[in-house]
Design a protein around this nucleic acid. Structure first.
Lengths: 136, 136
DNA sequence: CTTGACTCTGGACCATGCTCCAGGGTTTAG
DNA sequence: CTAAACCCTGGAGCATGGTCCAGAGTCAAG
């Protein structure tokens, strides 16, 4: 069992040292073992966990969500079901965003194409792109 | 021209009153007309603008980005030169966001599809999928 | 052994995007 | 006319997700 210092585990996982301690405070990482000196000691498992957190963050999960994901991953009763549901919810959200952004892209494209120089269209296609009745 | 009070415009757009004033400070909304009493007076256009802001925010745009988009549309309406280039820059930004979200979608789909939603954690690939060597 | 790199704690600080408050004045329904 | 509902300003406070710091102790290479 190679043991990592906080600096090592941070480098391996690609995050800042302060971030590691911050995640510990936020309970995304369990309180690590300590040397007699008080130095934190991490294991390879923690590197994996940190990478998991980083990737989940990149997928748009909030830290609280990620904590929930990690908790579920340790829960043999409801773990799998919960993970599946949460990933699906996140997926639905991402798909909705893509749809909206595509609308905005159409609006911007029209703007770019339609006014090579100047000339006024009465209605701006950008605002119109996201127009619509109200239940976002 | 029906005029809206700040409370009305906020309700119509689905945001808080304080948020409207905050957006004014951040120049996402132009300084509105005032009554003699000092009360702000808004028009239907402002409701539209606020809704746009809300939706753009839901898409993950920062307020600064949204301000840029709004400036673009305002400049469009008054035929300002240089619009074309800026619109193209915004378009590139939106396209980058779409690409990024599509990546997320692929990642999430892999998780959702691969996970049966039942069974034991050892068979749930979500954790495994978020694991792995490092090149995010 | 010394020196430079590393780690500890607790708390301050940052940017973003609100949200709330006090202590006023204004509007409007009845 | 009056009470309830609304609006004003300026500034403080909050949640998120970190980031930085001082002042002190620890570790490892040479």
């Amino acid at each position: 069992m190679s043991a990592y210092t906080i600096g090592k585990v941070a480098r391996e996982a690609g995050v800042a040292i302060d971030t590691v301690r911050y995640y510990e405070r936020r309970a995304l990482l369990p309180p690590p073992a300590r040397r007699l000196s008080g130095y934190r000691e991490y294991a390879a498992e923690d590197v994996r966990r940190l990478r998991f957190i980083r990737r989940a963050k990149a997928l748009g999960f909030a830290l609280e969500d990620i904590r929930a994901l990690l908790d579920l991953s340790a829960d043999h009763e409801r773990g799998v079901r919960g993970l599946h549901a949460r990933a699906q919810a996140r997926l639905a959200d991402v798909e909705a965003r893509i749809t909206q952004l595509q609308k905005m892209r159409r609006g911007l494209r029209r703007l770019v194409d339609a006014c090579p120089g100047s000339g006024t269209l009465d209605h701006c296609p950008i605002l119109a792109a996201l127009d619509g009745k109200d239940q976002p």
